[in-house]
């Protein structure tokens, strides 16, 4: 995955980032602090099945399909924001 194109400051006001956090909460360990650099696979106590469910919820919420090869490239939340923006541009 290429480095996210969004700066750290900009990401906090990005509606997509806010949406991702909202969709992530029910799947993640309740007591974790989430930041743009949080690793979805490592830091949130989510296994591959929980991640898949989270992705399904996110897809429904923002009406987009995220192909598996794109998901495979994502590590942090900021990666995911960038990947979804890229998909939205391609659509």
């Amino acid at each position: 995955m290429s480095k996210p194109t969004i700066s750290e400051d900009a990401i906090f006001s990005d509606p997509l980032y806010v949406e991702i956090l909202q969709q992530l909460r029910p799947h993640a360990d309740a007591d974790t602090n989430i930041s743009p650099q949080t690793s979805i696979t490592r830091d949130l106590g989510m296994d591959s099945l929980a991640i898949m469910d989270f992705i399904f919820d996110l897809e429904d919420a923002i009406d987009i399909s995220i192909p598996m090869e794109r998901i495979a490239e994502v590590q942090t939340i900021s990666d995911l924001v960038a990947a979804v923006h890229k998909l939205q541009q391609e659509a």
């Binding site: 898949m52 399904f56 009406d63 987009i64 399909s65 995220i66 192909p67 598996m68 090869e69 659509a91």
Partner: peptide, 26 residues
Amino acid sequence: CKLSDAEVIRFRHNDPVNLAKKLERL
């Protein structure tokens, strides 16, 4: 899927509505 060069999209298990949404987007 790993062997194929196609783009791979998953739909919710046994869920025709979710499949329809994904085909609609394509």
